[in-house]
Nucleic acid binder design. Structure first.
Lengths: 201, 201
DNA sequence: TTTCCTCGCTACAGACCTGTCTGTTGCTAG
DNA sequence: CTAGCAACAGACAGGTCTGTAGCGAGGAAA
């Protein structure tokens, strides 16, 4: 799938990071997410991306580095969506929180949803010092930080606790899709968030 | 570790399931949980258990079967603890729920806690029809079912929704230990559960 | 034209994986 | 004493894994 019909960009010229690297990362991200990181070998990645193995190892020192880059990319995508939504609810923290629960709930309910990549990789690699684990941990801390920010703007009594509760709730939604019907995730998250905010007042 | 100092049970006699099988499953469970299922090969299991590979394959047709047996075992342990706690709170659903949040929160905060084995294995194997995945899914459905049971006895308006929220919350705690301090997990769970119950009334 | 860099292709090393097979040891029952 | 069984030990087949090396093509820069 995804034929390229003859080298689109000349590529080599300007110093901008080669698109070969981008193609490898894009392909690896899809495979890693769908099939699992350990289940996908570098041979499969290079075959699917249509590149040489030497090219992969030119841009990524090891497979572990490639995995970390995958999570980094997912991290950036996630916060890009987050920021877009947040931008529509300036000066309305309650509305912003509900909006986040909305898009997260919608995403969790998608048919091909396979869980949060950060949590999946963390489950695949027990070693806390694995490069990808550090990206994952930083991502989750950032989630809690942003929720704390919203909680403070809400003016609740114990913002730190509410932020923790909301982070746990969201992580729970990420891993619970097998027992959640596609339709209910959004409402469940929104109602739960409302209840937690209410109780924190 | 766990030396046996000379064949304790005569074993061969009475039909009771050989303790060799138990030794393999016990050893594999520890390794699978700590190191991850894919990271542990059968060679390591047999070496650590001090058994022959033929013995492993006598009791478990494939490694996948061993993995499923591992989750089955964890499932039984989990409900055993659950039932013990539940037994102390007959006719007091609110107290029972708080008690569950207590021991789950305590468990999540333990230093060597490595997450819920059911969720970890689910993250390692994307194929929903994997034998171990079926055990994991059944386990999570059972969790929701038991929470629904408590919710009904609480007499709340929408017990089904509350059960889903609590299940998501618990699953979230299982995967959030990297961003939760060991001490706060218990209180966070208990307060969140109270808030959700309160809102469901 | 010559030089240099990136790329794809292929083969390889060495480790590890699952699962099978052969053969040996020791215990128990008849 | 013999037959059967459970277990151990170890080699093996066939495949996969990560990471490296050598080769030739093609384009850009000198």
């Amino acid at each position: 799938m995804q034929q390229d019909s003859g080298r689109s960009t000349p590529n080599s010229k300007a110093g901008e990071a080669t698109d070969v690297r981008e193609r490898i990362l894009e392909t690896a991200s899809g495979l890693f997410y769908r099939e699992g990181v350990r289940a996908v070998g570098v041979d499969l990645v290079v075959a699917a991306a249509g590149v040489a193995k030497t090219s992969l190892y030119r841009y990524f020192r090891t497979k572990d580095d490639l995995i970390a880059a995958f999570l980094q990319r997912e991290d950036e995508d996630f916060w890009r969506t987050w920021d877009e939504v947040a931008g529509k609810h300036r000066d309305d923290p309650a509305g912003e929180l509900q909006a986040h629960m909305d898009w997260i709930g919608e995403r969790v309910g998608r048919p091909n949803y396979r869980g949060c990549p950060q949590l999946n990789v963390a489950a695949e690699f027990p070693q806390a010092d694995h490069p990808a684990r550090q990206v994952a941990t930083a991502h989750k801390l950032e989630l809690r930080r942003r929720l704390f920010d919203i909680a403070e703007r809400l003016g609740v009594a114990r913002a730190e606790i509410l932020a923790g509760q909301l982070a746990v709730l969201i992580n729970g939604a990420f891993v619970s899709s097998p027992i959640l019907s596609a339709a209910e995730a959004k409402d469940l998250l929104q109602q739960a968030a409302r209840a937690l905010v209410q109780a924190a007042r």
